[in-house]
Simulated scan of single mutants.
Amino acid sequence: MEFPRIHLRRRGPGRGRHARVAPVILGVLLLILMSGCSNAASVSPPRESKSATEPTPVQVDLSTLPAATTFGNTAAAPSDPAPRAATDGVVLHVKQELAVYDAPEGRAIARLPATQFKSPTWLPVTAERGDWARVLLPSRPNGSTGWVRVGTAKVEKARTPYLVTVDVEQRRLVVRKNGREVGSWTVGVGSPGTRTPKGRTFILASIRETVTDFSPIILPLGTHSKTLTSYGGGPGTVAFHGWPDPSVFGTASSDGCVRVPSDALHLLRSLPLGTVVLLR
């Protein structure tokens, strides 16, 4: 497995601010999850934030719904209709737990918590219809989407100018800002038996590693290995992370994660949560 043991810290909404160590029970859960990603690290919050007014709420018993997290399975969620397409950069901040629907005014299929790995929940918006937005979900199956009501105080919208693409076959990662390339690197990808999954996903969280030095930062994505049901007993979350041996860059040798050089990781960690990642 690629991940060492972990200890998690909570990050605040601003860049460079980190919170205290999470309770022991939560720490153990994350230890099982990725065997090595820890301490939520600073990530730039998306900009142009704006709040909305509160309409009459729809009454839903959230406790009966599966959680839309990297640990969860939202089998009833609609699949992403455009898994190779970029978005216009709109991202949604979930400030309070809320319901996810299969369509505007449709059936509630999941619940979205306000945090993911103790980082605030930011999800990319792929479509909008009135007071509803379609977002990518971090749960299995890969490519899950859902509709959330945006005209409430539970959410706010912002915009990120960044887009990350990874050409899995060419083993090339490119970061663009407002359509202009700002960085390009040769990276390592999944081996033939544990391929990096393709599709449209996003930067889910940022975790600071304090136990080992194989990667100072782990950036979990909203997607999972298709061949491994777990990494070290967890849900098999795919991530961006560094690697101490540069010979892995340009090879297909990981368990599905994307191994990146240190300067690429430095840039990636500064991108807003919710930034779209196209794995092609």
Rank of each mutant, 00 (worst) to 15 (best):
R9T: 12
K154L: 07
I32V: 10
P244R: 15
L163Y: 07
P120H: 09
L137I: 02
S254K: 10
R107Q: 15
W147H: 03
S42Y: 09
T275V: 00
G190C: 08
V135F: 03
S225Q: 09
A68G: 13
L26N: 08
T237W: 01
G233V: 01
T64R: 15
L29S: 06
D102T: 04
W243T: 05
P120I: 00
G190A: 11
V166L: 09
A75P: 08
G236C: 06
A99C: 02
G14L: 14
A114H: 11
P246E: 11
R159F: 01
G234L: 07
L65F: 00
T152V: 02
A77N: 12
R111D: 01
V164R: 07
L204Q: 11
V276K: 13
T56D: 12
T210S: 15
R208C: 06
V155N: 04
R5I: 06
V91S: 03
A86E: 14
S35D: 07
T275H: 04
G179Q: 08
V21R: 12
T64H: 11
V90Y: 04
W122A: 03
L271Y: 07
L33T: 01
A205D: 08
G250M: 10
G256W: 03
R159W: 03
L92H: 00
Y231K: 09
Q116Y: 01
S191C: 12
D131P: 11
P120Y: 10
A68N: 09
V155L: 02
G89Y: 05
V211L: 14
S51F: 12
A127Y: 01
D263N: 15
V148P: 03
G236Y: 09
L163W: 07
R84V: 05
S225E: 08
A103C: 04
V28Q: 13
T237Q: 13
F3D: 09
A99E: 01
G143D: 01
V277D: 05
P141S: 05
P46A: 15
T121S: 12
W185L: 04
L98Y: 00
P55G: 09
D213H: 14
T53S: 14
G234T: 02
P55I: 04
I6G: 15
K95G: 08
V277K: 06
V28R: 14
V276H: 07
S51H: 12
H241C: 07
E181V: 11
N142E: 02
L163V: 04
E156M: 11
V60A: 02
L271V: 01
T74L: 13
P261Y: 08
L163K: 08
T237C: 04
R11V: 10
H18Y: 12
R15V: 04
T74D: 13
V164W: 12
Q59S: 15
D167S: 13
S119M: 03
H93K: 10
G27H: 05
K177I: 00
R129P: 00
V60W: 01
P13I: 05
W243I: 00
V24K: 02
P83S: 03
T64P: 02
R172S: 14
D88C: 05
R107W: 02
P45Y: 05
T160M: 10
W185R: 09
N178T: 02
M34G: 14
W185P: 09
A127T: 00
V148C: 03
V168C: 07
G199H: 06
N178D: 15
S230Q: 11
T53Q: 13
E156S: 14
E105P: 01
T196L: 11
G72N: 11
A99L: 05
L137F: 06
I207T: 06
L265Y: 00
S254L: 06
N73I: 07
E181F: 04
R269S: 14
